[in-house]
């Protein structure tokens, strides 16, 4: 995999360490700071192009055409944006990843064509949200830039869905039970499988329906 690492300091060094030992990877490192270039060259023994990654002659020099991944790690959101857009439009890079500081840029950069936008504050708030779900004994995992949520819901004996085959519970169409954990085994469910108390249901849904499906499963059986 050809990976381009554009700007960044500690982030760049970390990404380089993650990928440099695999002989299948070709790392292309570009950095605007002479100081960072010297540090990387001295400690990582790889070639680094010195210059701004939003300039075409620098990307030409670094030879990034048809790279698989381009990741922009500077602390300026707009510099990262400009570098990613140039790499994608003019150098046919397959996937561009942009680090941003301002959480409100996450959605907008995606809309403007950046394949993946990473923001630590945004991730932090997403984590806080899933922590608050944890309090209700639910764990979540978000995938595909938060378009898919996988939620773990443990079943209690007083839930309406408990002791019924899946076909009988009128499970909403906006979600699906991907798997059931039961006594350390995984069951891939079909309509005949009966949900037991202490099962953990692994539910796939969109983020906006997550709380609906949790309430559906947690609905108590009528006495």
């Amino acid at each position: 995999m050809k990976i381009v690492i554009a700007n960044g300091t500690t982030e760049a060094k970390f990404v380089i360490d993650m990928f440099k030992d695999d002989p299948n990877n070709e790392l292309v490192v570009i950095n605007s700071s002479k100081e960072v270039v010297d540090q990387i060259v001295a400690t990582k023994q790889i070639r680094v192009t010195h210059g701004d990654p939003w300039r075409d002659y620098i990307l030409d020099e670094a030879n990034i055409t048809f790279a698989d991944v381009f990741v922009a790690l500077s602390n300026s959101d707009t510099d990262n944006y400009a570098s990613c857009i140039l790499a994608k439009r003019a150098y046919s890079v397959k996937k561009v990843i942009c680090l941003v500081q301002n959480p409100s840029n996450v959605e907008i950069y995606r809309k403007l064509g950046i394949d993946s936008v990473v923001c630590s504050t945004y991730l932090l708030t997403e984590n806080i949200k899933s922590e608050s779900s944890m309090e209700r004994l639910v764990r979540t995992l978000t995938l595909e830039n938060n378009k898919i949520v996988v939620t773990e819901v443990p079943v209690l004996s007083n839930y309406r869905v408990c002791a019924l085959p899946i076909a009988k519970i009128n499970f909403p169409r906006y979600a699906s039970i991907a798997a059931i954990y039961r006594d350390n085994t995984v069951i891939i469910p079909n309509g005949q499988v009966v949900i037991n108390a202490k099962d953990v249901l692994l539910i796939i849904t969109s983020p906006d329906k997550q709380s609906d499906i949790i309430s559906f499963i947690k609905e108590k059986r009528k006495k």
Binding site: W54, D77, T78, D79, Y81, A82, I85, I108, K111, L112
Partner: peptide, 16 residues
Amino acid sequence: GDDNLNLFLTHVADKI
């Protein structure tokens, strides 16, 4: 005076 900011704002004004 910041080309990269100008590029971003252009795309926002145009595409969004």
